[in-house]
Amino acid sequence: MPRAVDPSNIEDKQKRVSDEEYARTIPCNTVSVSAPFHWLALGLHDFIRMPLISAFYGLCFTLAAVGIVLLVQWQGTHLVVLPSLIVYMLIGPFLALGLYDASWEREKGHQATLLHSMKAIGRNSTSQWAFAIVLMVAMIFWMRIAALLHALYPSVQGAPLIDFLPFLLIGSAIGFVLAVVIFTISAYSMPLMMERRVDVMTAVFTSFNAVKTNIPAMIVWAFIICGGILIGFATYGLGMLITMPILGYGTWHAYHETIKKHHHK
Rank of each mutant, 00 (worst) to 15 (best):
A102G: 09
Y100V: 01
L90C: 14
L97K: 05
M89W: 14
P93Y: 01
W104H: 13
I121W: 08
S103P: 12
T113I: 08
H110E: 11
A96L: 11
M89K: 14
A112R: 02
S117T: 03
R106H: 00
N124K: 04
E105F: 05
E107Q: 15
L90M: 15
Y100G: 02
A112T: 02
H110S: 06
E107F: 09
E105P: 08
I121K: 05
L99D: 03
L97T: 09
A102M: 04
G92R: 13
E107D: 14
E105D: 12
G98F: 15
L115I: 13
N124E: 01
E105C: 11
I121A: 09
H116V: 01
K119N: 08
N124S: 05
G92T: 12
E105S: 14
L90Y: 02
F94H: 14
L115Y: 12
Q111M: 08
A112Y: 02
G98S: 14
G122D: 10
A102E: 06
M89P: 11
P93H: 04
A102F: 11
I121P: 06
M118N: 07
H116D: 10
L114K: 04
K119H: 12
N124Q: 01
S103D: 05
A96Y: 11
L90A: 07
G122F: 12
L97G: 02
N124R: 05
M89A: 15
L97F: 07
G109K: 10
S117M: 05
P93Q: 03
I91N: 11
S117F: 03
S117W: 05
T113H: 12
E105V: 00
I91W: 10
K108P: 05
F94P: 09
A120D: 08
D101N: 14
A96G: 12
A96Q: 15
L95C: 05
L99Y: 06
L115T: 12
A96R: 15
S103R: 06
L95T: 01
M118I: 10
L115G: 08
M89S: 15
G122S: 09
M118S: 09
F94R: 07
L99S: 03
E107A: 11
H116S: 14
M118E: 09
Q111T: 12
G109R: 09
G122E: 09
S117V: 03
R123N: 10
A112D: 01
G98D: 14
R106Y: 00
S103V: 00
L99N: 04
S117E: 02
L95G: 02
R123V: 02
P93L: 03
A96F: 13
H116N: 11
A102Q: 06
G109Y: 07
A120Q: 07
G122P: 13
L114Q: 01
S103I: 01
N124A: 04
R123G: 10
K108Y: 00
M118P: 12
N124L: 04
R106W: 00
Y100R: 03
L90F: 05
